[in-house]
Structures are given as structure tokens and as C-alpha cells.
Write a protein that binds this DNA or RNA. Structure first.
Length: 777
DNA sequence: GCCGTCGCATTTTTT
DNA sequence: ATGCGACGGC
């Protein structure tokens, strides 16, 4: 019968599933109706049915109904709205296994796309785990990684030259600056960063300079001019930036029918993670590739779209069904991460947004602790409070430091928090600092490697021509640039010719000649060496090592360490040649790797530490104990985001992301006054606080007496008690008329004692303790 | 060519 | 407040 070959049974499962109506347990129905003649009568539950086959039971058994529906969905288009903590990656990975094992897809028929290298690595890892082998031939990667791969394979059709280089945003900015200077644009009036932003924005939208209609607008005219000149410069240098990787790939597929067809035939099954973050080009790219695919599953959450400001289009997920009318939408709403209280808060908050696809997170778990809200006097007090709670959580509640995260809207907020943690000797780690391959010393070393790859890498020359200092000054470099521009050649060529023709003064000539000789010598000496030895040789013989060693202070020390780390990284770098790919020289592959995967933010600290990061970088993570600091109007929602349409909603989604990071306990804090950019600000509480139902929030007024355990730094307010009374400065109190307040100050003692109390509604008042019915809270 | 000083801006970040 | 970038003096 048809269940003996596994595939037959499962195909039947599929077919039946498609025609069942929602609401009726489809698989039970299936068992009864479709298979009953062939099955023993006890087989009424699909679980038993499924259990007849080991492969499939392992795929579906530990999933909830919605997850199972997504994993076992019929071919075609699925939009999975995966709420925070709803097992999204799990569904993706199981779906891939399902496609392989049930739909008979070969690994090479599958394309799985993510946004970050981290997500791609995790997915690859989990697929291997589930399949019990590495998914040979499957394309699992980031948009940029996959685009890069396509361009390397088809550089000719894409209009590139072989061995093109990838620019990171730093290189990009350098080129933009160069180009703008050449155009004679005043960089005061036209900040290069703005132009860079503009160019990237256009590329994200799929627009080339010729698509821009300036319509007399000076800004647009100028920017289009810069954009065009920048494109020229990139072409001359045989370099592509991040946006170009995507746009070029889109154009490649769009304009090469046979190539497109080839990949369409190959990728029968396409899966996309974090779909709410796709920009216009990425979406267009997917639509092309998936036009005739057997299945397309997009997974995402419109409520977690927080990258609109860098080109992500929330409409891509919201209106996906317009482009793919057959789309089936599946909601993953059961949350396995947070307490019911936290989920209720998140649901309530996000319900203030309009245009949502709609989703309501729920959990089987109990309510848990209420959310705590603390309003501090200033940012120091806020940090002090957070650290106190952390100390207690570590001491009494058995939290590890890595269970705890402090989230904030902007990086500037981290300082006060760091200081307080430092004072309390609590190890912490800040995410989002400089990344490994972006460090100055690393970029310098890579500059030399880049020159070994190609002498015509102008960016690399500009970076290292005088690092370490070797007597080649700005003037000389300016000559080179001038010559290169006139003759439309690279800086290296310009150098050769200027030196050859003795067109520069003797000193400059000698210096340049020495530099060229150095590069040639590095090349000759290391040609045959393995990558890491090559790297080491270059670091040592370029003078970089000595140069950084002699830098004063800790800086030099850590730079030397990083250079050593680079050698280790080169050694650890093993380049996996994929099938059908030309073999890249290890050096080239390593340089690509350095740009595309700029490495962890901070060298992995293995010490257990409290995690500090912005709300943006917290996306995708979870922590048992979460603090959201700086819940103030103007800061969060940030005032800069309040103008554009949808800006406030994106901020709210950011708040939603923050809240849903918390597993057990969530603390919200704000400060009545905050010093920012050297200016004292008085911001009202964030509206997001008010959007959380008050019954979920427990307001902790000022710190309870006696717990101020250390660091009197900002605690003038705290600790000292009002004589002969149960009151302490900073203590939360309640008054029958004025409500809840905080003791700010006192004078007198005994029957004469008066206290100044700040009431949130009423402001500050002086009260005679003997009359006022003041209760400690 | 290098170092110091002044002025200015200052949300969020990946690839 | 602070850091980075541009400019000017040695």
C-alpha cells in the first residue's frame, strides 16, 4: 500500500491537507477519510500515523499546530508571521528538512536567505544537525553573500572584471570624498556622508544615476552627479560596494534570460528569513528568482520591522499577497520565551500601530512578575538603580550575569551605565562597538594584503602609502591623484610613471620608489607561503608591527595583539570551495571574507558578563532579565524619528522588540533629567510606558531605604533617614490626596519635622510630618 | 610632515 | 561632554 514507500504516504498527506478546511483537524480527517481502508483502525490520530515513519515523526512531533502547519504546508507560497520567540528558525529548518525528505527536493534545489552572517551560520548549523549531515549543495547565506557568489561566477555577464574587490563603507566613503573633491564640491555645503547615504539609498531602491529626475532641484542634481562620478570611480577600480552587490545581481538576472532561467530551474524552493527587513532590490531579486519556483516561504514579523531608515520596506511583507495571490498566511503566535505579563504588555503596546497584519502573542506559562518601572532623578540615578537591581538579582535570584541585558535607544546612553557597573565591579560587555576587521591596525594590515591582490586598489594605496610614515606626504599623494585622474589610471600606475619620468622632486621620488619596492618585495617573499604566514610576514616587514608597538599607552599594546589575532584569523580561515565555483586564491577569499563578515563586534569575551546594547542590536536575542533604560519622550521615541511618516510606529516596533526580549523580568526606567551632549534635558516619560496597561506595571518609586549598598556617587538623595521617622530620602511614600511620591528632602526633627515630597501629578510639596498622613510604601 | 587646537555635530546598523 | 575632522603653526 502507499504508506510503505515513505514518499507515497507523505504525498498523500500533502494532497489531503490541501483540501481540508481550516478549523477541522486536517490530519485526523485525513487518517479517517483517506487512509482508513489501508490503515488499522487505531490509527485515527495523525501522531500515530506519523509515528509510522521515523523520519517524519522527527520533523513534526515536537512542533505546535501552527508550526506544523507551516512545516508541512503544501508547495506554493507561504507567508509565516513569526512572532517574537515563536520558534521561527525551528520552522525554517524543519521546513527545509521536510522539503528534502517529503517533497523530494535535492539539497541543491534549496535556497535559504537571511540577513546576517550569524543567522545564516545558525541556520546552516541547525540544518546539518537535523539532517545529520552537512547540506551539500544547498545555498544558505545572506543576501550579500549569495549575490557575491553569483557575481563571482558570472562577473563577465554582470559587466565586471575578474577579481573585483568589495568595498566596505569606509572605502566607499573615501571614494565618495575623492570624487566630490574632483568635482570641486565644497564639503561643508555637501557633506560626503550625506552623499554616501544618498547613493546607498538609491541603490537600495534599485535606482541608477540615469533614473534620477532632478527637476531643477539643486540637491538632486548634485547628488546625481556625485553618484555618476562615484560609479565611474568604482568601475575604474574594479570594485563594488555592498549595495552594488545586490543591485548588480538583480540587473544580472533581469537582463540575462538564460541565466535567470538556469537559477530558476535550480532553486525550486526558496526560503527567506526576516522578510520584513528586505529592501526594494532584495525583494525584486526574490521575485525574479521565485517567479516559477515550486515553493517560496517567507518568514518574518511586520511588528519587528525596525530598519525602515536604511531602506527596509515593511510593505514587502505586508503586501506580499498582492504579488503572490496564492499566498497562504500562517501565524506563529505561541511564544516560548516570555511570561504572560510581558506578552500582554507587548501586545497592548503594538496594538497602537495601524496597518499591521495583526498577531497576538500568547503563552501557556504563568503571568510571572509584574513589569517594574522606575523613574530616576537623572541618568546617574537611573544607572545606580539598575546596578542595584542587578546586584540583587545576581546575589539572591540566581541570575548569571549573561542572563541580564540593559537595552537603550542610543549608544550615548551606555556611558552612565558603564560607569555604574564599573563602580560596582560587575563585568559587562558592550555590543556594537568596533568590529574586528574594521579596526585601524587591521585595516592597515589588510591594506598591504589588498595591494598584493591588486596593485590597482587605490583605496588600499591611500590607506597605507604612508603608514607607517615613510615620508610620503599629502602633497605627493595629491600629485599622484592628479596624475591618475588626468590619465585615467590607478594610483599605482601613476606612481610608476611619475617616478619613472622623474616628474617629482627627488625626495618624493625616492620615498615612492622605496614604497613600490617594499610592495614588490613583500610579494616575492610571500608568494609561496600559506595565507597566515604571508600575513605574518607582511605585518612584520611592512613596519606596521614596529609602528604600532611604539604607539604609547595601552593602545599600542592592544593593536599589536590584534595584529597577532589577524594572523590567527588567517590561519583559522578555511575557504570552502563550493561546487561549480572557480577556485579563488586564498588571499582573495580571505579579503572578501574580511569585508563581508566583518567579524564579531568584540573579541569573544568568555567571562560571564552583563550585556549592554542598543535596542536594534538586541533583535533576535533573549535574556531572562531585561532593562530598557531611557524611556523618555525625545529619547525613545527618539525626536529625530518623529518627523517622517511612520517614524513613530517604527519606534513603537522597536519598543515591542525590546519588551519581547525579556523572558522572565522586565524593568523600564527613565530619568527626570538627563544630561545629553552636555545639556540638561527634562523629558517626560515615554508614551510607550503609558501604552502598557497599568495593571501589568509596578511602579517602583525611589529606592527603598537601606538598600543603597555602595557608591554614594549620586546618592545624596539616598540613605540618610529623616530623624525619628520611618522615612528615608528617596523613599517612595503615599499621600491620601496627592497620591504616590518620593521624599526629596527634610528639615527639623520630631514634631517639627517637615519633608519635601515630589508627587508625580502635583510636583514637589513640603509637608509637616505630624499632620500629613504620609505612608511609607 | 607632524602635532596641537579649534569647531562642530551628535539615532538606530548590516552587509 | 566628547570625539572626530579640518586647519594652522612648528
Amino acid at each position: 500500500m502507499f504508506f510503505s514507500p515513505r514518499r507515497g504516504l507523505l504525498l498523500r498527506l500533502q494532497t489531503i491537507k490541501q483540501i481540508t478546511t481550516p478549523g477541522i483537524a486536517p490530519l485526523v480527517w485525513l487518517a479517517e477519510t483517506a487512509l482508513s481502508p489501508a490503515l488499522p483502525s487505531y490509527c485515527l490520530d495523525y501522531r500515530q500515523l506519523i509515528l509510522m515513519n521515523d523520519d517524519i515523526s522527527s520533523l513534526l512531533n515536537d512542533l505546535n499546530d501552527a508550526q506544523r502547519e507551516a512545516v508541512a504546508a503544501p508547495l506554493g507560497q507561504q507567508r509565516v508571521l513569526a512572532g517574537a520567540g515563536s520558534g521561527k528558525t525551528r520552522v525554517l529548518v524543519h521546513r527545509i528538512a521536510w522539503l528534502c525528505q517529503v517533497e523530494n527536493a535535492g539539497a541543491h534545489n534549496i535556497l535559504a536567505v537571511t540577513f546576517t552572517n550569524k543567522a545564516a551560520a545558525e541556520m546552516r548549523e541547525r540544518i546539518s544537525q537535523l539532517l545529520g549531515r552537512s547540506p551539500q549543495g544547498m545555498w544558505v547565506g545572506t543576501f550579500h553573500g549569495l549575490a557575491h557568489r553569483l557575481l563571482r561566477a558570472h562577473w563577465q555577464e554582470a559587466g565586471l572584471q575578474d577579481g573585483f574587490a568589495i568595498l566596505d563603507s569606509d572605502d566607499q566613503l573615501r571614494i565618495v570624498k575623492r570624487v566630490m573633491a574632483d568635482l570641486g564640491l565644497d564639503d561643508k555645503r555637501w557633506p560626503p556622508r550625506q552623499a554616501q547615504w544618498f547613493i546607498n539609498g538609491q541603490k537600495d531602491e534599485g535606482l541608477r544615476p540615469r533614473h534620477i529626475q532632478p527637476a531643477g532641484d539643486l540637491f538632486l542634481t548634485t547628488m546625481a552627479q556625485v553618484y555618476a562620478a562615484y560609479e565611474d570611480a568604482c568601475r575604474r577600480q574594479n570594485a563594488v560596494d555592498f549595495g552594488e552587490l545586490l543591485l548588480r545581481t538583480l540587473e544580472l538576472l533581469r537582463d540575462n534570460a538564460s541565466l535567470l532561467e538556469h537559477y530558476q530551474r535550480r532553486f525550486r524552493h526558496i526560503l527567506v528569513d526576516e522578510f520584513q527587513d528586505t529592501n526594494a532590490v532584495q525583494y525584486a531579486w526574490l521575485r525574479l528568482l521565485a517567479a516559477s519556483a515550486s515553493s517560496l516561504m517567507i518568514v518574518g514579523d511586520d511588528d519587528q520591522s525596525i530598519y525602515g531608515w536604511r531602506g527596509a520596506r515593511i510593505e514587502n511583507i505586508q503586501q506580499f499577497n498582492l504579488d503572490f495571490p496564492q499566498t497562504q498566511t500562517i501565524r506563529l503566535e505561541q511564544n516560548y520565551r516570555s511570561t504572560a505579563t510581558i506578552l500582554k504588555a507587548a501586545n497592548a503596546l503594538i496594538s497602537n500601530n495601524s496597518e499591521r497584519l495583526g498577531k497576538n502573542l500568547w503563552t501557556d506559562d504563568p503571568d510571572g512578575e509584574p513589569i517594574r518601572f522606575y523613574q530616576a532623578f537623572n541618568e546617574q540615578d537611573e544607572a545606580r538603580y539598575i546596578v542595584e537591581v542587578i546586584e540583587q538579582a545576581l546575589r539572591q535570584d540566581g541570575y548569571r550575569r549573561q542572563d541580564i541585558a540593559i537595552l537603550y535607544r542610543s549608544n550615548a546612553q551606555s556611558r552612565a551605565l558603564e560607569e555604574a557597573l564599573l563602580r560596582a565591579s560587575i563585568p559587562y560587555r558592550i555590543h556594537g562597538g568596533q568590529r574586528f576587521f574594521e579596526r585601524l591596525e587591521i585595516r592597515n594590515a589588510l591594506g598591504y594584503l589588498r595591494l598584493l591582490r591588486s596593485r590597482h586598489d587605490d583605496g588600499a594605496i591611500e590607506r597605507i602609502i604612508n603608514v607607517p610614515p615613510r615620508g610620503i606626504g599629502e602633497k605627493t599623494v595629491a600629485h599622484l591623484r592628479e596624475y591618475a585622474r588626468e590619465h585615467q589610471c590607478s594610483l599605482w600606475t601613476a606612481m610608476q610613471q611619475l617616478v619613472g619620468q622623474r616628474l617629482l622632486n627627488g625626495r618624493a621620488c625616492n620615498a615612492l620608489q622605496a614604497f613600490m619596492l617594499l610592495i614588490e618585495q613583500l610579494e616575492i617573499a610571500t608568494e609561496e607561503l600559506p595565507l597566515h604566514q604571508r600575513t605574518r610576514h607582511i605585518i612584520e616587514h611592512s613596519g606596521l608591527l614596529t609602528y604600532h608597538k611604539e604607539e604609547k599607552g595601552e593602545k599600542g599594546q592592544s593593536r599589536v595583539e590584534n595584529l597577532e589575532e589577524l594572523v590567527t584569523a588567517a590561519q583559522a580561515f578555511s575557504y570552502q570551495q563550493e561546487e561549480g565555483e572557480e577556485l579563488l586564491p586564498p588571499l582573495v577569499a580571505f579579503l572578501d571574507h574580511a569585508v563581508l563578515e566583518a567579524g564579531e563586534t568584540q573579541a569573544e569575551q568568555h567571562e560571564d558578563s552583563v550585556q549592554l546594547m542598543t535596542l536594534h542590536s538586541a533583535k533576535g536575542l533573549e535574556f531572562p532579565l531585561v532593562f530598557m533604560a531611557g524611556m523618555e519622550e525625545g529619547l525613545f521615541p527618539h525626536k529625530m524619528s518623529m518627523d517622517g511618516a511612520g517614524g513613530l510606529e517604527e519606534e513603537r516596533r522597536l519598543a515591542y522588540v525590546g519588551i519581547t526580549r525579556a523572558m522572565q523580568q522586565l524593568y523600564l526606567t527613565c530619568a527626570e533629567s538627563r544630561r545629553l551632549h552636555g545639556q540638561e534635558n527634562y523629558n517626560p516619560q515615554s508614551r510607550f510606558i503609558r501604552e502598557i496597561p497599568s495593571e501589568l506595571v509596578h511602579s517602583v518609586r525611589m529606592q527603598q531605604s537601606g538598600t543603597s549598598s555602595h557608591g554614594s556617587g549620586s546618592s545624596l538623595f539616598h540613605g540618610s533617614s529623616v530623624p525619628d521617622t520611618p522615612f528615608t530620602l528617596g523613599q517612595a511614600v503615599s499621600h491620601p490626596v496627592f497620591g504616590e511620591g518620593v521624599v526629596l528632602n527634610f528639615e527639623g526633627a520630631g514634631a517639627q519635622a517637615r519633608v519635601q515630597v515630589h508627587f508625580s501629578g502635583e510636583g514637589s510639596k513640603w509637608l509637616m510630618l505630624s499632620f500629613a498622613k504620609l505612608e511609607p510604601l
